[in-house]
Amino acid sequence: MSLLPSVGLFTTLCLLYGCATSPITTAQQREAYLQQFIGQTSQSIQANLDLSSIDYQQVQSPALDNQTLTYTVIRPITIPAPMAQNPADIDSGAVPIQITPRAQSYDVNLQCKIIFRLENNITKSVHYSGRTC
């Protein structure tokens, strides 16, 4: 009997579980939210942008120059670290060790930059730097 199919199934289940514990907004929802700021001034964006509504946390003050308004953000996600139990231990009457939920996962902060391109202080487009946006 090959162990490879079992490992593949286990990996797939872990990935699906990881997706279930990720933030709830999709990339399309984040994109749609940020696109609504095109045509607005940098001051309007700074006053109205709510990064937490799209699962981002701002890590520093926005950087503003004549051509761009740049936000450096992180998107925290939790990645599960499943622990397999040995069925022989359960059948033998061994008491399973209780593990706290924190020990079964680890947190990762994915960092990226949101860049609003400006012309005469009016946003013309929004771009991203980093693959985690």
Rank of each mutant, 00 (worst) to 15 (best):
I54W: 08
Y128K: 13
L34F: 05
M1Y: 14
P82R: 01
P62S: 02
A63S: 13
Q46W: 03
T21E: 13
N86S: 04
L110R: 14
I114P: 00
A27D: 14
Q40K: 04
Y56S: 05
N48A: 13
D55Q: 08
A103V: 08
D89P: 01
I24L: 09
R30K: 15
K113V: 04
T100E: 07
P23E: 14
I45V: 05
A88E: 08
Q57F: 14
I99A: 06
Q67W: 15
P80L: 13
L15C: 10
I74V: 12
F37Q: 02
R102A: 11
I99R: 08
S129F: 15
T21C: 11
L51N: 02
A47Q: 06
Q46Y: 02
Q57E: 15
L4T: 12
F10V: 11
T123P: 02
P5V: 00
Q46T: 00
A27M: 12
N48S: 12
Y33A: 03
L69D: 03
Q104H: 05
Q111D: 06
Q58C: 06
Q98L: 08
L13R: 13
T12Y: 09
A63L: 14
S129I: 15
T100C: 04
L13F: 12
A47S: 06
K124M: 10
L51K: 01
T123L: 03
P101R: 01
K124D: 08
Y33G: 03
I45S: 03
P96A: 00
H127V: 14
Q98V: 08
Y56N: 07
Q36G: 03
N66L: 10
P5A: 01
Y56G: 04
Q67T: 15
E119A: 12
T78W: 13
Y106F: 12
S22R: 12
L3Q: 09
R117Q: 15
N120R: 04
Q40V: 02
A32Q: 07
M83H: 07
P76Y: 08
L49P: 01
S53L: 09
N120K: 06
T78S: 13
F116L: 01
R75K: 15
Q36R: 05
